[in-house]
Design a protein around this nucleic acid. Structure first.
Length: 435
DNA sequence: TCTGGGGTCCTAGGACCC
DNA sequence: TCTGGGGTCCTAGGACCC
């Protein structure tokens, strides 16, 4: 048996904890560069603002509908997330943190009334950190996901699709009298099932598969042939056959990336070199945080694909490192060499990124014959000192020279017009309580 | 005028091997 | 006119997730 705990409209809820005046109002949180909506309050959803709606399409609604738009504050959300996860871990013996706002809890061997436990946990999360969440319980991860979807939909739109008794906490293995699993599955569009995206939805539709119940009753081998093993697994999971294990030990990452769209298009090489240096440094830092090293560095640049009238350009290149490395200097150098190889003048570059590939555990050391004393120098202590300084005095205190001077000298940084303070992670931003 | 970032997995096809 | 079988590895592209 699994539970899925998921913060409702998580980013919006985090903002509301520190600005209660946002309660009851339509609120959207925007992606980096204030590009599009990545979280919406229930009121914003009711206005028809969809996930991923470009901000320029919402803008007109701001004044008359009273929509509040905020820039994403990932530092705040990350900190609130660790608090949520710590509390949610109390629900059962195993936890898989699946994303910033949701985790699976393994419930095997839990005594007592699981539904009551879940209800109490939900209250505790709300009381301790102010985040409303939905909890779904099911015999497989896919069913727990579906139960969670039901819990949230039934709360937001009581009796629209599901009985309001299923709101907030929903256990598909113990439905209330007069409500069957088949009814719940039949009320759920196939598109709302975990693992069924827009493309598959359209293809399944053509085969007459429209609801989760249709999917659960479909012939698994046929679906495997037509759509592959993932869809087959989803079908089996919907029937209660556990195919996806709980991963309470996160598997090591296979790649680490830092990619950004620019606040304004970039036409010249110099700012691109600054940006790529900055992204490569950030990626190298993440690499060291998880004690891994990279063997290859991919760098890419491209124009804005939405601007059809612009001349389009997109290229990437993968640069091998001489040996697996977590050294910022080596990684930045490789990224800059790659950039020079793919750079062409005459385009409005919209986005660039650095992706570190072929990651290896930092504990694994490949012995080799040293022929070149310069490259043999051990960068470990230097990187450790760099990370300590930046941790103590703030990110960017010490950085590679090629990333530029920072501040206003950087023309390419992203737009964040409405970012809220880092209430929980920065002394200067600490909220003040007034009597 | 304005459209995010960071991941994972699967599959098909080509190169190459014996 | 006739032209094997069975592998592995790599890459690009597609699909999905939040």
């Amino acid at each position: 048996m699994h539970a899925l705990v998921d913060g409702n409209n998580f980013y919006v809820s985090c903002e509301r904890v520190f600005r209660p005046s946002l309660n009851g109002r339509p609120v959207v949180v925007l992606s980096n560069n204030d590009g599009c909506a990545i979280a919406r309050s229930n009121e914003a959803k009711a206005l028809g603002i969809r996930m991923g709606t470009p901000f320029h399409d919402i803008r007109s609604q701001l004044p008359d509908a009273g929509v509040v738009a905020l820039s994403a504050n990932f530092t705040l959300y990350g900190d609130m997330s660790s608090r949520l996860m710590a509390i949610a871990a109390g629900l059962g013996p195993a936890q898989e943190i699946y994303s910033i706002d949701e985790c699976f809890i393994g419930l095997h061997g839990m005594p007592g009334d699981l539904l009551q436990r879940a209800v109490r946990l939900r209250e505790r999360v709300l009381r301790w950190i102010g985040i409303p969440c939905g909890i779904g319980i099911g015999s497989t991860k896919t069913l727990a996901k579906l139960a969670n979807h039901v819990a949230k939909d039934a709360e937001r739109r009581p009796d629209a699709r599901y009985p309001s008794a299923l709101a907030q906490v929903c256990d598909l293995s113990r439905l209330p009298a007069g409500c069957t699993l088949d009814q719940v599955l039949a009320a759920t569009p196939a598109a709302d099932v975990w693992g069924i995206g827009p493309r598959l939805t359209a293809q399944l539709e053509r085969d007459g598969i429209r609801t989760a119940l249709d999917l659960a009753r479909a012939d698994a081998p046929t679906l495997r042939r037509r759509f592959g093993v993932i869809v087959e697994r989803t079908v089996r999971e919907l029937r209660g056959e556990a195919c996806i294990q709980l991963e309470d030990l996160p598997p090591p990452k296979k790649e680490v990336a830092c990619t950004r769209a620019f606040g304004v298009p970039v036409r010249t090489l110099a700012p691109l070199q600054e940006a790529v240096s900055d992204y490569a440094s950030r990626a190298a830092f993440k690499l060291r945080q998880q004690r891994t090293r990279a063997s290859q560095v991919l760098v890419f640049i491209h124009t804005n694909p939405f601007r059809r009238s612009d001349k389009q350009y997109a290229r990437s290149i993968t640069m091998p490192l001489r040996r697996p490395s977590g050294d910022t200097a080596a990684i930045v150098q490789a990224a800059l060499r790659g950039l020079l190889a793919i750079w062409q003048p005459g385009y409005r570059i919209h986005k660039a990124g650095v992706i570190l590939l072929d990651l290896q555990d930092a504990g694994v050391e490949q012995g080799e014959l040293e022929l070149d004393a310069a490259t043999a120098r051990e960068a470990g202590p230097l990187m450790a000192a760099l990370d300590r300084l930046n941790d103590r005095y703030g990110r960017g205190t010490v950085q590679v020279g090629s990333a530029g001077l920072g501040g206003d000298a950087r023309t390419w940084t992203m737009k964040q017009q409405w970012r809220t303070p880092q209430y929980t992670t920065c002394w200067d931003d600490l909220p003040v309580a007034r009597a």
